[in-house]
């Protein structure tokens, strides 16, 4: 594999003095890989992800994304960087009262002039791209339905579509299946992995479902209490390592 697309160096974040949520985390994301971070709740996975697109400002450390040091960016530079990074959320975070199509086009807002965005004057090719993507996601007939009419799996597919509309160079996926049933979880992960590989987008996923992570990851990172305690191929993830990540092994049997 070539040069890393995202390099996280010595990243720390604490909300309260001397209670770090992230503790000196360093991690590389390589082109076109699906990297899945596993770990118990409160391990700092979501915080790490939100530092990457600067929804949260880290306390110290660097995040290099194609030559940019993300924590140091402000204003327009930060937003221009954010639009190159797509994000998928645990609870989908769709704008409930907008239609499915409008939700997808939110992915284009970062590229539009302020007035065009305000008046929803989307470019024709953006609308075409959104419709093509909806067809791929199996949501074509829902384009003009309001997002709050959809089921969980459908909503998460809209969430994936919205992130992909940004033409991202990196996809951040935060607990994508925690609000879904097991079958839907696999279906959602499958369509996401497929679309990402097709577009050669590296994907960084948080989840706590170990089996799902094994099934879809190229590489797995284990986090515990704000530190990385495992980083390797999925074959290297043994029960001993899992016990180290989650603490104890009684839950495995």
């Amino acid at each position: 594999m070539s040069e890393a697309i995202l390099q996280i160096r010595n990243l720390s974040k604490s909300y309260f003095h001397k209670q770090p949520v992230l503790h000196d985390v360093s991690l590389d994301v390589k082109p076109e890989e699906i990297l899945i971070i596993i770990g118990p709740s409160g391990a700092g996975k979501s915080t790490l992800m939100r530092c990457i697109n600067h929804l949260i400002t880290p306390s110290s450390g660097h995040i290099y994304f194609k030559g940019l040091d993300i924590p140091s960016l402000h204003g327009n530079q930060m937003r221009a960087c954010r639009r190159r990074i797509g994000m998928v959320f645990q609870e989908f975070n769709l704008v409930e009262r907008l239609t499915v199509l409008e939700n997808l086009l939110i992915g284009r807002l970062g590229y539009m002039k302020p007035l065009d965005a305000f008046l929803q004057r989307y470019a024709a090719e953006d609308i075409d791209a959104a419709e093509a993507l909806l067809t791929r996601l199996g949501l074509r007939e829902f384009a003009l339905k309001r997002a709050d009419n959809l089921s969980g799996g459908q909503r998460q597919r809209v969430g994936i579509g919205r992130a992909l509309m940004q033409n991202p160079e990196l996809l951040l996926v935060d607990e994508p299946t925690s609000s879904l049933d097991p079958k839907t979880s696999v279906e959602v992960m499958e369509i996401m992995a497929e679309l990402a590989r097709e577009r050669h987008i590296p994907v960084l996923v948080n989840m706590h479902d170990v089996n799902l992570a094994r099934r879809f990851a190229d590489r797995i990172v284990g986090m515990r209490e704000g530190r990385i305690v495992f980083d390797g191929k999925k074959e290297e993830l043994t029960n001993d390592t899992l016990a180290k990540i989650y603490g104890g092994d009684s839950w495995m049997h």
């Binding site: 697109n53 975070n93 769709l94 704008v95 939110i106 965005a117």
Partner: peptide, 17 residues
């Protein structure tokens, strides 16, 4: 719900958007 706001921010949209 700030979740919906967060999602729009994450897309790189301006404050007005």
């Amino acid at each position: 719900s700030m979740k919906q706001v967060e999602a729009v921010r994450a897309s790189g949209a301006s404050f007005l958007s």
